[in-house]
Structures are given as C-alpha cells and as structure tokens.
C-alpha cells in the first residue's frame, strides 16, 4: 500500500510498542551515522508544530474518537512529511523516523478503525528502506513503562476504549492488541524484527550491521565540513518514551 521510495535519500524507521526500546536505538543510530559523516534528518511521531495545539486541546478535553484521533495524527504526519521528510529525502539525506505509519496501523486499528481505511490515509507516504520493529514481550514493555512513568496518560493507556477502569490493566490490554497488529504487519510491510530482549548494545550492533549493508555503495548528500547538523529538531538528545 505504501509507495516505493524513488528519491535519492534513504528512509529508516523504528517501530514497536511503548517501552520496546526503539527510541534509545534510533538515538544511538542517529549519533553513529552523524559521526560517520552522513547527512541525517530526524523526525519524531506527533511533533508537528502546526497540529500541536489542537492535539493538546483534544487530549486535555478528551474530545477524540478513534476516527478523529487517527485523522489528526495523520495530519501531523502529513505536515512532517510534506515539510520535512519528503524534501529531505529528495535532497539525498538519510531520514530517521521514530515511529511511522505502522504506529497508526497498529494503534488506530486497536482502537477499532477499519484497517483498509487507515492504510489508505497514509498511502501518500513511502515504504521505508529499512523498517526496524523492536519486539518485546508484553510483560517487559508494561514493566518498563509503568516502572518509569508516574502515571499513565488517558489516551496512552487506551482509557477511551473502556476496556478496564484500571489504567495499568487498560494499558496492558491496549498494548496487547497493538502487538498483535504489529505481528501481522511484519510480512505485509517487510519489517525487520529485532529482539528487544537483547542488551541495548547487542541490539545496536545488529542495527548498525543492517544499516551498513543497506547503505553500501550509496552516496547521499555530502555533509559540508564544519556543519554538524543538516536540520534537526532540538530534542534529538532527549530520549523520550511514550506517544
């Protein structure tokens, strides 16, 4: 359903449920590629400045339905796509994305929207050159998130689905549904599965191996001497979990 990448750039994305460790991995990958002299651009899920105030308002007042949630997140993605990711790819940059359309295919379908409908929404986007799916057992992910977070947020915990009164229980069941959707996507979208149970370093070794192989012989946009960054959102160094 996603278009083929016909640009000179390379698109690398990470996916996985909350607490899978994907953000840590892409942060390390970013720093490594950068130190290798590559031009890299980073884009994070749900970070469009244009849509931000609307998302915030809707979350605070609990205005979302599964359909409007899906549409607004796609609006956010479209803004990042049209004004960031796509032009960067055209310029021959390596674009790293922390979460991609597959997050929507997982979460929105877990919320009850039609799988074909949400796949069509994102059909303007391109199939990544590398799509890394960090798979962890449900218990591990839940443990990581509930241990690190003071309180799970309403939509993060899937409270809008009325699965359970308990946020932790609701979160677990919601993530379980998402996990099932991800597993279905592995063959549909050719996701490369990385075992999130490995140590951070072992995972990173694997990630670099995969990326190195894919980039062999590829010449992207050269990075000018003395320019540390192409364009970069300032929060790249902050490893943020959650949605």
């Amino acid at each position: 359903m996603l278009r083929k990448n016909t640009t000179p750039g390379k698109l690398i994305i990470v996916e996985g449920i909350d607490g899978s460790g994907k953000s840590t991995q892409i942060d390390l990958l970013y720093k490594w590629l950068h130190s290798q002299g590559k031009s890299v651009y980073f884009s994070e899920w749900n970070s469009s400045a244009l849509v931000k105030s609307t998302t915030k308002r809707a979350k605070k007042r609990k205005l979302f339905t599964p359909t409007t949630f899906s549409l607004l997140q796609c609006t956010d993605f479209a803004d990042r796509w049209e004004n960031g990711i796509f032009p960067m790819l055209k310029a021959g940059v390596i674009v790293l994305a922390d979460r991609y359309a597959f997050t929507a295919f997982g979460r929105d379908v877990a919320r009850g929207v039609d799988p074909e409908w949400v796949r069509n929404l994102y059909s303007f986007a391109m199939q990544p050159d590398i799509a890394l799916y960090f798979r962890v057992p449900l218990d591990v992910a839940v443990q990581r998130i509930t241990g690190a977070r003071a309180k799970l947020k309403f939509y993060e915990a899937g409270m809008d689905l009325h699965i359970s009164e308990s946020r932790v229980e609701s979160f677990r069941r919601f993530q379980e549904r998402i996990l099932n959707e991800y597993d279905k996507m592995v063959s549909e979208f050719n996701l490369t599965v990385i075992d999130g149970d490995f140590t951070v370093q072992a995972q990173q070794r694997l990630v670099r191996e995969i990326v190195k192989q894919k980039l062999e012989g590829w010449e992207g946009l050269p990075k000018p001497e003395g320019h540390p960054l192409v364009t970069i959102q300032s929060d790249i160094n902050v490893v943020k979990g959650g949605p």
Binding site: T68, T75, A78, W81, L121
Partner: peptide
Amino acid sequence: TLSRITMSLFYAT
C-alpha cells in the same frame, strides 16, 4: 505552511 495533504487531512478531522 499548510501544505496540500496536511490541509486535506486537517479539514477531514
């Protein structure tokens, strides 16, 4: 900065 697809989807929302 309201690009085409972004605008479509914002209105759809």
